[in-house]
């Protein structure tokens, strides 16, 4: 019995046409076909979605939490970057 773990895959599900694929979790699978089928079995059994993306976790490059200070804090005092100074008509949604 081999102790080698199958690679980890990140699973993204589109809940309905027109919406984004959203990250729902991750699973281990030997290849992309298996990853998508397992995602189907694990993450869409309650009608959660109509499309699946599987991305091998190794291909995801993440920012370093240690960089949070230099990355994000400088924008804290730049409130003028938010378009909050406009009056929006009531009919406009999703803004």
């Amino acid at each position: 019995m081999s102790n080698q773990e199958w690679p980890l895959w990140e699973i993204f599900i589109r809940s309905k046409a027109g919406l984004d694929h959203k990250h729902v979790g991750s699973l281990h699978a030997a290849d992309s076909t298996m990853a998508i089928e397992m995602a189907r079995d694990v993450y869409t059994r309650r009608m959660e979605g109509i499309s699946i993306w599987a991305v091998e976790s190794i291909n995801i490059h993440a920012s370093n939490p240690d960089d949070a200070g230099i990355f994000y804090e400088p924008s804290n005092d730049k409130i003028y970057r938010h378009p909050t100074f406009y009056d929006l008509p009531d009919e406009i949604t999703h803004m």
Binding site: E37, M38, D41, R45
Partner: peptide
């Protein structure tokens, strides 16, 4: 044998 297959077989 693994969690995902367990769920697949149950489905």
């Amino acid at each position: 044998p693994i969690l995902e297959v367990d769920i697949a077989l149950s489905n």
